[in-house]
């Protein structure tokens, strides 16, 4: 699956083996809480990203359950140990079933 154009990342392209790298990401998403009302006074239906995962060559690094108190355009940063060259895959699951994915190639030497 192609990288989602809604995703921004800052991840190093290269790392030394065993180094701890920081992964910074942001997804463009309204994270609509379901508590807001539109101009006509009708509640805007809830729509949030409730699951986020990060894997390194298929092995889980970090995952998260998010609720409506996570801000819109959710930014997150966390750490990972550089073990082997390959792919860092980030996935966001929307409540409606839509999935946003981003794969980053990293070289570990």
């Amino acid at each position: 699956m192609a990288n989602s154009d809604r995703v921004k990342v800052r991840i190093p392209a290269k790392a030394k083996k065993g180094e701890i790298i920081e992964i910074k990401t942001q997804l463009s998403h309204d994270m609509e809480t379901g508590q807001r009302k539109d101009a006509a006074g009708k509640p805007i239906p809830r729509r949030i990203v409730n699951r986020f995962t990060c894997t390194w060559n298929g092995e889980p690094v970090v995952s998260a359950d998010w609720y409506q108190a996570v801000s819109s355009n959710p930014f997150s940063s966390f750490f990972a140990v550089a073990t082997a060259s390959g792919k860092i895959k980030l996935s966001w699951w929307d409540e409606t079933g839509e999935v946003f994915e981003y794969t980053h190639d990293i070289v570990v030497e």
Partner: peptide, 21 residues
């Protein structure tokens, strides 16, 4: 409940940052 993060030894450092309401 705002967020639940699940870490592994692969995380290397027990730290997460995000933004909340």
């Amino acid at each position: 409940v705002v967020a639940s993060w699940y870490l592994t030894p692969r995380s290397g450092r027990a730290e997460v940052n995000f933004r909340m309401r």
